[in-house]
């Protein structure tokens, strides 16, 4: 009888490809991203507010979600959603970082923002 195995030879190839992609993505997101300068807050699919990460700030949205900007980082601090994935995502600082509160349809995405100081000063 041909019992199903835990891992077959072909599986090892599949796993190798998946693990390679996972490690590549993880390394890229850990070391490949530049510091962000602005963050876009969108609510219900619409751009709501763009904030600079250079200035500390505290924002309370109409849906009750609280967002804090501190020390060049931005993150959710309070929300009425049950899972609090948004708050647990923590503080974002790199361009490309994302935190989302799905129940409140709120997303923070950090971007490089406008031209950096280097290009402005030549």
């Amino acid at each position: 009888m041909n019992e199903r195995k835990l891992v077959t030879k072909r599986d090892i190839a599949v796993l190798a490809v998946l693990v390679f992609f996972a490690i590549a993505l993880l390394l890229f997101f850990r070391f490949g991203l530049k510091d962000g300068r602005t963050a876009l807050i969108s609510v219900d699919g619409r751009d709501y507010l763009t904030v600079s990460l250079d200035k500390d700030d505290e924002i309370t949205l109409e849906n009750g979600v609280k967002i804090i900007v501190s020390d060049g980082k931005i993150g959710f601090t309070e929300s009425d959603c049950p899972d609090l994935v948004c708050v647990h995502t923590g503080m974002l600082s790199k361009a490309g970082d994302v935190a989302a509160c799905v129940p409140n349809k709120t997303v923070i995405s950090v971007s490089g923002g406008e031209a950096s100081v280097d290009t402005l000063t030549y």
Binding site: L18, L25, F29
Partner: peptide, 15 residues
């Protein structure tokens, strides 16, 4: 959320 930015969670979820 009406926004594809949530795909930012994809790398973590892949791992």
């Amino acid at each position: 959320v009406g926004n594809t930015a949530v795909l930012g969670y994809a790398p973590v979820l892949l791992v």
